[in-house]
Amino acid sequence: MRISIDARDPGFRAYAEAREQGITFNVTLDGKRLAPVHTADDLTGEVIVLARDRSGHIMLDPRRPGEILLETHRGRVRIVRRHRHWTDDSNVI
């Protein structure tokens, strides 16, 4: 499965349709939960997240002024669908 918050990405449609139904997602990479996630693909083992500096601040892309820098990580990706009635809303996309 591939999900993405980027409307230009092939995973956006699956993400948007799920969100319309009140479904969110938890994403893990090698067993570590990630949030927020820009794109996740459990078939290719790839996640794209916001780049952060050592202090945890979001970094801007030096090549594209005003845009956030994204990082790609690879490993064992797991995407878990969460329904609206689940109580823990932390760390979901």
Rank of each mutant, 00 (worst) to 15 (best):
M1Y: 03
R2S: 02
R2Q: 08
R2Y: 01
I3K: 07
I3W: 01
I5H: 02
A7L: 10
R8Y: 06
R8G: 07
D9K: 05
D9C: 06
D9Q: 07
G11C: 08
G11I: 11
F12C: 14
R13I: 15
R13T: 15
R13S: 14
A14F: 11
Y15E: 12
A16L: 12
A16C: 12
E17I: 05
A18L: 09
R19F: 05
Q21A: 06
G22H: 01
G22V: 02
I23C: 04
T24Y: 03
T24K: 04
F25M: 01
F25V: 01
N26A: 08
T28Y: 00
L29Q: 00
D30V: 00
K32A: 11
R33F: 05
R33H: 08
L34C: 03
L34I: 06
L34A: 04
P36A: 13
P36R: 10
P36D: 11
V37P: 00
V37A: 10
V37K: 05
V37H: 00
H38P: 01
H38E: 10
T39W: 06
A40M: 07
D41I: 11
D41G: 09
D42F: 05
D42A: 07
T44F: 09
G45R: 04
E46C: 14
V47F: 03
V47W: 00
I48W: 01
I48S: 04
V49C: 04
V49G: 01
A51Q: 12
A51E: 10
R52V: 08
R52M: 06
D53A: 03
R54S: 14
R54E: 07
G56T: 03
H57S: 12
H57R: 10
H57P: 00
I58S: 09
M59A: 04
D61Q: 06
P62C: 13
P62A: 13
P62I: 13
R63A: 15
R63K: 13
R63Y: 09
R64H: 13
G66K: 12
L69P: 03
L69D: 13
L70W: 08
L70P: 06
E71I: 08
T72E: 14
T72P: 05
H73G: 04
R74C: 06
R74E: 10
G75E: 03
R76P: 01
R76L: 12
I79P: 00
I79G: 00
I79V: 07
R81P: 08
H83F: 09
R84I: 02
R84Q: 08
H85D: 15
H85F: 10
W86T: 03
T87V: 01
T87E: 08
D88A: 02
D89I: 05
S90H: 11
N91H: 14
N91V: 05
N91Q: 10
V92W: 02
I93A: 09
